[in-house]
């Protein structure tokens, strides 16, 4: 599952996965496509991924320095439905959804609205439980090179969405699990650079998932900790449809 940073809400989604095609601009022993393919395998493999039809993920969210706490609940249903509920103490509840056709958001600040353009594209990218078809959402994937991330070597791949700005993903050179992602969150309110860090991977019914995510946006550092993951549970389609009001 790809991580999304749309209003920092879709962060409860899990792994970034791969399955891509690309030309590398640098002389390297590995291509972007190979890195992304290996990332899919690292996260459990296509066969395992394809078995997932529904999932409900519950996480806590905290900005410890600013004393903010909240929760995130994500509902996903194959092949392309998602609903994310984010509740932050003192700020209220934000809900975002995509039913495969219509992307929408409802929050106390902007109210209920239909998402279009880059916002809708971002929701669509993050809607599939796990995407193995990069061509569906990305126009380009480029191998940038090998870097150090802490004491680990990482492969850096730059992905360019069909709509939206490029993002970079940093994969552990040994395990091919996603460790970091950088990019620009684009939305109706502008563009915000972000950094996200993934750690504490655990295997869950064949999938390797990051139990902890840290997202930095300006001076805010959000820590998201996965608390509960349920697969194969009934999830009503109505959850994903844009409400009337």
């Amino acid at each position: 599952m790809k991580a999304s940073f749309r209003n920092l809400a879709l962060l409860s989604l899990l792994l970034s996965v791969a399955g891509s095609w690309a030309q590398s601009p640098v002389q390297a022993d590995i291509t972007a496509e190979q890195v992304l393919d290996k990332a899919i395998e690292a996260s459990g493999g296509k066969a395992t991924i394809s078995k997932i039809k529904t999932a409900v993920l519950k996480a806590t969210m905290e900005a410890p320095m600013q004393g903010l706490k909240g929760s995130v609940v994500t509902y996903v249903k194959a092949p392309n439905k998602i609903r994310v509920e984010t509740d932050i103490d003192g700020l209220g509840k934000t809900i975002q959804g995509f039913d495969g056709k219509v992307a929408w958001a409802n929050d106390p600040i902007q109210g209920l609205r239909k998402l279009e353009g880059a916002e809708k594209a971002a929701m669509a990218r993050n809607s599939s439980i796990v995407s193995t078809d990069w061509k569906q959402f990305y126009s380009k994937a480029v191998y940038i090179g090998k870097e150090k991330f802490g004491d680990k070597d990482v492969h850096v791949v730059e992905l360019t969405p069909k709509e939206g700005k490029p993002m970079r993903q940093y994969f552990d050179a040994e395990t091919f699990l996603l460790l970091k992602q950088t990019g620009v969150q684009a939305g109706a309110m502008g563009e915000m650079p972000f950094e996200a860090f993934f750690s504490d991977y655990k295997e869950f019914e064949g999938l390797k998932l990051a139990m902890k995510q840290v997202v930095k946006v300006g001076p805010i550092e959000l820590q998201i900790t996965m608390k509960e993951i349920k697969q194969g549970v009934p999830v009503d389609d109505k959850l994903f449809a844009m409400p009337a009001k």
Binding site: G111, V184, A188, M189, G190, M192, P193, G218
Partner: peptide, 13 residues
Amino acid sequence: MRTGQTRFSVNPQ
């Protein structure tokens, strides 16, 4: 901000 900016976009409610 030093990097990035946010618009206070208003949609009629």
